[in-house]
Design a protein around this nucleic acid. Sequence first.
DNA 1: TTTTTGTGTATATTTTACTTTACATAATGT
DNA 2: ACATTATGTAAAGTAAAATATACACAAAAA
Lengths: 74, 74
Amino acid sequence: MGKSLVSNNIRLLRFQNGEMTQQQLADKAGVTRQTIIAIESAKYSPSLELAFRLAKAFNVKLEDVFTYDSEEKK
Amino acid sequence: MGKSLVSNNIRLLRFQNGEMTQQQLADKAGVTRQTIIAIESAKYSPSLELAFRLAKAFNVKLEDVFTYDSEEKK
DNA sequence: TTTTTGTGTATATTTTACTTTACATAATGT
DNA sequence: ACATTATGTAAAGTAAAATATACACAAAAA
C-alpha cells in the first residue's frame, strides 16, 4: 500500500548552498551519487541515518530536509 | 566505520504514553513487534518513513524520538 | 497450577536501500 | 571539434531493514 509519504527539498537545498552538486553532496554524506539521485527524485526514501547525514551536510535539521505528508483527515 | 550513531528513546516514550506495549506501538506504526524490538534495542535503525510513523504514534517530532550522535570534534 | 501477557532471542526469508558500473546527453570551456 | 562537468537512466549485485515464525521466561491473573 501506498506511495511514499516522505518528500524532500534536497534539490532546493543544494542550490541554496552555493550550487552544491550531487557529487559534492554525495561525498559529504558518504554515499554515491546514484543514491543522491534516487532520493532526490523520490525513487525511495533514505535510511534514518542517511537522512541525518544529509541534514548535517546542509547544516539544517532533518525535518527541514524531509517532511512527512501524513494522512489528511477525511 | 562504525556503530550506529542513531539513538532513540522509544522505551521511555512507551512508558510515558500509558505503558504502551511493544505490540500496541507496532500496531500503531504498522510494523511487527519484532521490528519494534530491533529498533528499541538499537539492533538497527529504521527507515525514514518508519521513523516518522513512530514519532506520529507518540505525537512528537521525529527528533524527539531519534537523535543523531554526530561525531565529536577531536 | 494453568493461562495469559509482555518481553526477549534466534533463524530463515522477503523487501528495500545502497553500490557499482556503464552509457547517454545537454551545457560549458578550450 | 574535442574535453569536461553536471545530470540522468538502467541493470546487476551487495547490504541492511523488515517480516514471519517459533521458542523461552518471568510476572500477573484465573
